[in-house]
Design a protein around this nucleic acid. Structure first.
Lengths: 187, 187
DNA sequence: CTGATTATTTATCAAATGATAAATTTTACT
DNA sequence: AGTAAAATTTATCATTTGATAAATAATCAG
C-alpha cells in the first residue's frame, strides 16, 4: 500500500483511519502480460492502481481494435465512462507487461465518501486531474497531423516506445500501423 | 437562480442553506453576441451557468482559431484546465448569441467545499459527468472520418447548425471550413 | 534451437483532406 | 433598401493518410 499512499499524498493527505478504510476495500492483483484485467461488457466496479506494469484501455470499432489510452506505474486506471454512469463498458483494460496492481472496490469506495469527506475530496482531485489530462488529449488530437501527434507522444512519454508495441501506439494516435511505420521511417 | 437549482438537482439535492451560500457567491452576467466572456491569458476564476445563449471555448494554434467545445442553455461552462490547475488559460470563452449567465466565483466555491460537503459532492458529480463527456469526445475524434464526425454532431445536437456558424463547427470537428462545406455538399 | 506466429516495414495505388483562390450567399449596419 | 463585410460554397491541385499486399524482422512455444 505504500506506493498507493504516496500517490494519494500528491492530491490530498488522508488520516490513518481513512487509509485503513481504503485498505479494507482494496486487494492486490497479479496479472500476466497480455491478459485482460477487465473484459468488454462488464460494468466497471474496480479502480486500479498500477504498482508495476503497463496498462491500456481498448475497444473495437468495426472489428478494428483501438487503444484509447495507456497507463504506467504509479497511476490510476479505470473505465470512467462506466465507473461514473454504472453502465456496462464497451472497453477493456489489458496489461501489456506482467503486472502488479491494487484493485479498489468502487461501490464500497463511494460508500466511504459518506463517512470520510477526505476520501471523497481525494478522489475528486484525482479525477479532476485526469479530466484535465483528457481535455489536453482532445486538444492534441483535434488539429495536429499524425506526425505531430507522434512527436508529441515521444516527448511526453519517451518510454512508451520501449514498452508498448507500435500497433497499439498507432491506434492511440488515430492512424493505422502502416501510417505510423511510414512516419517513423522518415527520420 | 431557479434554473440553476433545477440543474443542480439533476446531480445532488442541496439544503436551503447550501443554496443560499452558492447564491451569495454568484452574480448574473449579461453579455452581447460575439463578445468574449473570458479572455485568453486569464486564470479561470468563474464557473458559468448558461441561462440563455450559446457559448464556445476557443484557442489559437499557429494563428488559426480552433473551437474546443460548445455549450447551450442549462449547462455549465468553464476552462477546466485552468480552473483545476490555477494556471492561466490559453483559451477564451465567447458567447455566440446575446446571452444571460450566472457566474459562480470558483475560489469562493472551493472554500464552501469545506463547510458544505454536499456542495463538494454536487460539483464532484457535475465534473465527473463532464469528464465522461470528454472521454466520449476523444473516442469520437480518434478514429472517425470527418463525415462521420459531422453526422454524429448533427445527431447529437441537431440545433447546433441553426445556432452556430459553420466556421466554428469546422474547427470543432478538426477540419477546415472548406472541407466541411464539401462534406455538406455531398448530400 | 527451430519453425510458426506475430509485429513491423516497404511499396503501390486510391481516397480523404488541406491550401489557395474565386464566386456566391448571407448578414450587419446605416 | 443599399452597401460593405463576413460566411459559405465551389473549383483546382497538392499532401496526407488509408487499403492492400508482400517482404522482413522479432517473438514465442515446444
Amino acid at each position: 500500500m505504500n506506493e498507493l499512499i504516496t500517490y494519494f499524498n500528491q492530491f490530498n493527505h488522508l488520516s490513518d483511519e481513512a487509509i485503513k478504510a481504503i485498505a479494507d476495500i482494496s486487494k492486490p492483483v497479479i496479472i500476466k502480460k497480455n491478459q485482460d484485467l477487465q473484459a468488454i461488457g462488464h460494468t466497471c466496479r474496480t479502480i486500479y492502481f498500477i504498482k508495476k506494469g503497463v496498462a491500456r484501455i481498448y475497444y473495437f470499432k468495426d472489428d478494428i481494435e483501438i487503444t484509447e489510452c495507456f497507463a504506467f506505474e504509479n497511476a490510476i486506471i479505470a473505465r470512467v465512462e462506466s465507473l461514473f454512469t454504472g453502465k456496462p463498458s464497451r472497453k477493456a483494460i489489458q496489461m501489456i507487461e506482467d503486472s502488479e496492481l491494487i484493485g479498489i472496490n468502487s461501490p464500497k469506495l463511494f460508500e466511504l465518501y459518506n463517512k470520510f469527506p477526505e476520501i471523497e475530496r481525494l478522489f475528486r482531485k484525482i479525477f479532476e486531474s485526469a479530466y484535465v489530462d483528457t481535455v489536453n488529449r482532445v486538444e492534441s488530437i483535434q488539429f495536429h497531423s499524425a506526425e505531430e501527434r507522434y512527436n508529441a507522444l515521444l516527448k511526453d512519454s519517451p518510454n512508451v516506445l520501449q514498452r508498448v508495441p507500435l500497433k497499439y501506439i498507432a491506434s492511440y494516435l488515430g492512424i493505422t500501423q502502416v501510417s505510423l511505420s511510414r512516419i517513423r521511417g522518415i527520420r
